[in-house]
Simulated assay, not measured.
Amino acid sequence: MSQTTAILDAFAAQLKNTFGQQLAVELFPEKPSGYRLNHPRGAILVAFGNSKFGEPEALDAVFQQRNMTIPLTLVFRQLNGRDGVITYLDAIRDCLTGWYPPHCDNACRPVDEVFIGQVAGLWQYTQRFAIRATQLQQAGFGG
């Protein structure tokens, strides 16, 4: 399993462990335009956002910091109140802040939260988290 896939699966598992009785937790759909919210309250969709790599830290092999952003898309039927997306923004942030995904040497930390809009009666927000892993040169590749 790739490092990125393992991290995404771990995010989904962490969120399911905490919110699985309350919300749907899924990987971001292959065809977002065809996504249908089937849960009565809402869903957390986990995606890979980007990686930025630091300068190599060794002269004889590639060893770099991999700073990653993991965006969550929240799709909810309600904006405010106990079952609303605003309440869950706080709960999800509390769940992930300080948690260590696999392959990471820094704890998960929030980056930003942005209102996407309301589409077909569903409230949508994105919540992005930063993590840091290490990129290593694989044996047998390179010079």
Results as ranks from 00 to 15, higher is better:
18 T>N: 11
56 P>H: 04
50 N>A: 04
14 Q>C: 13
72 L>D: 00
46 V>Y: 00
115 F>Y: 14
13 A>D: 10
116 I>R: 12
66 R>A: 12
7 I>D: 06
65 Q>F: 03
99 W>H: 03
2 S>L: 00
35 Y>M: 06
31 K>W: 08
42 G>H: 10
104 C>L: 05
129 F>K: 04
108 C>S: 15
58 A>F: 08
92 I>A: 02
63 F>I: 05
90 D>V: 14
2 S>M: 01
52 K>L: 09
101 P>K: 14
26 E>C: 10
130 A>G: 15
51 S>C: 07
125 Y>S: 03
134 T>F: 03
1 M>Q: 12
2 S>C: 03
36 R>A: 09
114 V>C: 08
56 P>R: 01
18 T>I: 09
121 G>P: 04
31 K>C: 01
22 Q>N: 11
82 R>K: 11
96 L>T: 04
61 A>C: 09
64 Q>A: 02
24 A>C: 02
26 E>Q: 14
1 M>S: 13
44 I>Y: 05
125 Y>L: 03
125 Y>E: 04
75 V>L: 09
129 F>H: 04
112 D>L: 05
32 P>K: 11
64 Q>E: 10
67 N>D: 08
81 G>Q: 14
36 R>W: 00
54 G>E: 10
132 R>A: 12
142 G>L: 13
74 L>D: 02
69 T>W: 00
6 A>F: 07
134 T>Y: 10
102 P>I: 07
77 R>F: 01
3 Q>G: 03
103 H>F: 08
117 G>I: 03
103 H>C: 13
59 L>T: 06
114 V>Q: 14
23 L>R: 11
50 N>K: 12
37 L>Q: 00
136 L>H: 15
73 T>A: 05
64 Q>T: 02
111 V>I: 13
